[in-house]
Design a binder for these strands. Structure first.
Length: 810
RNA sequence: GCGGAUGUGGUGAAAUUGGUAGACACAGCAGACUUAAAAUCUGCUGGCUCGCAAGGGCCGUGCCGGUUCGAUUCCGGCCUUCCGCACCA
């Protein structure tokens, strides 16, 4: 009987058709089984899935299938992050409306999804451009408005002229637009809607302790960095020469305040004259033009003087281009002796430098003619009654002094700023507000939601929102006074959409609420979230914020959305991240067409451990295709005649089988190093080949059956085909996961290395568990060892049972 | 500058309580089968070196040092590449 060759195309087509109705992966909300919510980040429907997506989904799918087999009720949904700029750009380029372009892309990508047989419950699909979804964005916005968490203000905002829209701080990378990496953002003053994420800065930071262990340290570090909490003191300096309010500065080093030789305010600051002042304006413009990076320090004397409330010293007020209005109070005290930037500034402008802290151990008196700033903590000196205190103690006492004397207070400053969500674009959630000349910004009544995007629009990609040109959208009556009013034409940042989408999966068709709270209580938090690290500070901070807001509104109970986060590595192509705009994508359909869907996903898992970046190269994928077809051929050929051997082959294969089972089970339970799981399966197959002729029919079929089950999370098509070939029915991934037997997995021989002075010299084969003393005796009697020792007596013999014997001689 | 990673054969990688470095693959070489090729199967494959051979020796996990009988693994100090933040007061 000739071997069957594996026709992956026929097999994959057959099962894809069988599974097309999706009923296989439907998840019940009520189940006696324990719940497990596993989720991969939803994609933007850009046109086609590429191999980077496949890697992401292959990890989640292996886990989902494994958890089914482990007896969990698994929730594994998928959706579309469907609003966004590319749809508008495509509309301009192809004259296709964004809605249609998006719909087409979703249809196409969904086809690829089903080709790969990822185990999603499509009944719960969420598409963020669906009015039934975005109406709840609007609803949440109104709730935030009620609570003062959404507000509108004129502000300097980041503007990308290519996107023709405002960007959030999180979307500015190295001073350039995140979508146009060489295009510097401009600063523009516009009236914008903001969400008060800063209200939650402390909670976002504190609750990270709930995430430790479940989230990668790297992501937590990035978030901590981004939130940028810094503890210090605000101090008021009275202006001595004019009737002006005091200058409030923020410092983390109040212990150095006696060393302040001037104040420096941002050019936007009142004392610098603000935007009205020509010199200040020039400085602001120059900085905007230069971008964010480090620039030559510039400044000038404002003509004002201020009084140091501690030393009563009168010091000049300067303005400086390196002082940022947006951080702290927009004003600093310059302590050139103990701060590098202040040092540089004061040297340049020949301002005095005065040391007021000396090193704890250095024992140096005040260094005269300092050549650099001493920025560490130390012992305070030349500082009135605080001289002699440590920096830490001085900070405490001086802050208390400021509070008692009404000239300052302890303060905490965050780098995090409020989240600007207004976008002057069409393809996003309309902000549900109406501007009335009498009543101001009036919220759209809840009953009128959703505020739908009009579909007949002209997209130009220039300047203001295209919605401005749709009179039937813009011209409305004020809900309060009934007078003529204008609808807000900005739309929401798309990161709003992805801030809560994973809640919607729990109740995707609810038309009277964003979701049923009871369902959230059942499914949340997400047990395992999987996605790219590039979202560490955008999506993953916003969605934590959103969760806390929803909790405070009272519709959910969990503090955090995600218990465990896994950040898989990127798929790189020619040294660059794979993306449509770089033109280096490897389309998933091409790989599936050429090698098969199972092969594509198995290779994505085999190429490297999942957290590592991989540079995609086709070399190697043949090996995986070869492996799968070897499995198929071996498993489907006629079973051997029951040749009653001595049973040693049976024992060997059974041992290997349970070792493989143990290895793969442990990989799922720990680091998900599926590359080694797959390697273990390859070894098992190699052993099957080796022992083939001497195996009993029973050992053979048992091994093949279990191998099929274990293959199911990684290569569902092949596993299902083999499962049926073996005479079973039903979906293989709903079978229980086979448990390994520690006794059967135990080796029957231990290879023990004999070392002399730590170098391998010989080997012993012994029974596992052989006593130390016996191993020592055997090693010392070894012919090679006796030859090497030349009659010397060992100084010491180290024995590690089942591993090695190290003989130490001098 | 601060924070986080990273470094092992020609290549992807493995080795998790310190105990045989390079599992499993890719590529390469040799052989079997074939009229031939593909496919498939078998063997070899870190470097240097000794030997006709069987079989040895030395070196080797970014660099330098330390701890240890023994270090890819632990400690100290450097270096590389990558990522995040950054005149943040």
């Amino acid at each position: 009987m000739p071997e069957k060759t594996y026709d992956f195309k026929a097999v994959e087509l057959k099962w894809a058709a069988e599974w097309a109705d999706g009923s296989l992966y439907r998840t019940e909300d009520n189940s006696a089984k324990p719940k497990y919510y596993v989720l991969e980040m939803l994609p933007y429907p850009s046109g086609a899935l590429h191999i980077g997506h496949i890697r992401n989904y292959a990890i989640g799918d292996a886990l989902a299938r494994h958890q089914w087999m482990r007896g969990f009720n698994v929730l594994h949904p998928m959706g579309w992050d469907a609003f966004g700029l590319p749809a508008e750009n495509a509309a301009i380029a192809n004259k296709t409306p964004p809605a249609e372009w998006t719909r087409m892309n979703i249809a196409r990508m969904k086809k690829t999804h089903s080709r790969f047989a990822f185990s999603y419950d499509w009944e719960r699909e969420v598409t963020t451009c669906d009015p039934e979804y975005y109406r709840w964005n609007q609803w949440f916005f109104l709730k935030m408005l009620e609570r003062g968490l959404a507000y509108r203000k004129k502000a300097l905002v980041n503007w990308c002229n290519l996107c023709a829209t405002v960007l959030a701080n999180e979307q500015v990378v190295d001073g350039c637009c995140w979508r146009h990496e060489t295009n510097p953002v401009e600063q523009r003053e516009l009236a914008q809607w903001f969400l008060k994420i800063t209200n939650y800065a402390d909670q976002l930071l504190d609750d990270m302790k709930l995430l430790e262990g479940g989230w990668p340290d790297r992501v937590l570090a990035m978030q901590r960095n981004w939130i940028g909490r810094s503890e210090g003191t605000e101090v008021d300096f009275q202006v001595s020469d004019a009737d002006l309010p005091p200058v409030r500065i923020f410092t983390t080093r109040i212990d150095t305040i006696y060393g302040a030789t001037c104040l420096i305010v941002a050019p936007e600051h009142l004392l610098a004259g603000g935007i009205a002042d020509e010199r200040a304006k020039a400085m602001i413009d120059a900085r905007a033009a230069q971008g964010m990076g480090e620039v030559e320090k510039e400044g000038y004397f404002t003509g004002h003087y201020a009084i140091n409330p501690f030393s009563k010293e009168r010091i000049p007020v300067w303005t400086g281009n390196f002082v940022l209005m947006g951080y702290g109070t927009g004003a600093i005290m310059a302590v050139p002796g103990h701060d590098e930037r202040d040092f540089e500034f004061c040297v340049k402008y020949e301002l005095p430098i005065r040391p007021v802290v000396r090193p704890v151990d250095g024992g140096l008196a005040s260094p005269v003619g300092m050549t650099q700033a001493f920025c560490e903590y130390g012992i305070v000196e030349n500082s009135g009654k605080w001289s002699g205190e440590t920096s830490a103690e001085a900070r405490r006492q001086m802050t208390r002094f400021a509070e008692e004397h009404g000239c300052g207070k302890g303060a905490i400053t965050f780098r995090l700023k409020d989240w600007g969500i207004s976008r002057q674009r069409y393809w996003g959630t309309p902000i549900p507000v109406i501007h009335c000349p009498l009543d101001g910004a009036v919220p759209v009544p809840e009953a009128d939601l959703p505020v739908r995007l009009p579909d007949k629009i002209q997209i130009t990609g220039q300047g203001q929102s295209p919605l401005e040109n749709v009179p039937e959208f813009v011209n409305v009556v004020c809900p309060k006074c009934g007078g003529a009013a204008r609808r807000e034409t900005d739309t929401m940042d798309t990161f709003v959409d992805s801030s809560w989408y994973f809640y919607r999966y729990c109740d995707a068709k609810n038309s009277s609420a964003p979701f049923d709270s009871a369902k959230i209580a059942h499914w949340f938090p997400i047990d395992q979230y999987i996605g790219g690290v590039e979202h560490a500070i955008l999506h993953l901070i916003y969605s934590r914020f959103w969760t806390k807001v929803m909790r405070d509104i009272g519709i959910i109970a969990n503090d955090e959305p995600v218990r465990k986060l896994f950040t898989q590595g990127m798929v790189i192509r020619n040294g660059e991240k794979m993306s449509k705009s770089r033109g280096n994508v490897v389309p998933a359909d091409d790989v599936a067409e050429q090698h098969g869907a199972d092969t594509a996903r198995l290779f994505a898992l085999f190429a490297a451990p999942p957290e590592k970046d991989v540079d995609w190269r086709d070399s190697g994928i043949e090996g995986i295709a070869r492996f799968l077809s070897r499995v198929y051929r071996f498993a489907t050929r006629n079973l051997p005649m029951a040749t009653p051997g001595d049973g040693s082959a049976d024992a060997a294969i059974l041992r290997k089988l349970h070792q493989t089972l143990r290895k793969i089970t442990e990989d799922f339970d720990s680091r998900w190093h599926f590359n080694t799981s797959i390697a273990a399966l390859m070894e098992l197959l190699n052993d099957l080949h080796t022992h083939e002729a001497n195996l009993s029919a029973e050992a053979m079929s048992r091994t093949i059956e279990i191998m099929t089950l274990v293959l199911a999370p990684f290569a569902p098509y092949l596993a299902q085909e083999l499962w049926v070939e073996q005479g079973h029915t039903g979906p293989v991934f709903k079978e229980p996961w086979p448990m390994y037997d520690e006794d059967l997995a135990r080796d029957h021989v231990s290879e023990v290395v004999i070392q002399v002075n730590g170098k391998n010299r010989s080997k012993l084969n012994v029974k596992p568990g052989t006593e130390r003393s016996e191993l020592e005796q055997l090693a010392l009697k070894d012919q090679r060892i006796i030859g090497l020792m030349e009659g010397k007596t060992p100084v010491r013999v180290v024995v590690v049972p089942d591993k090695l014997v190290n003989i130490v001689v001098r």
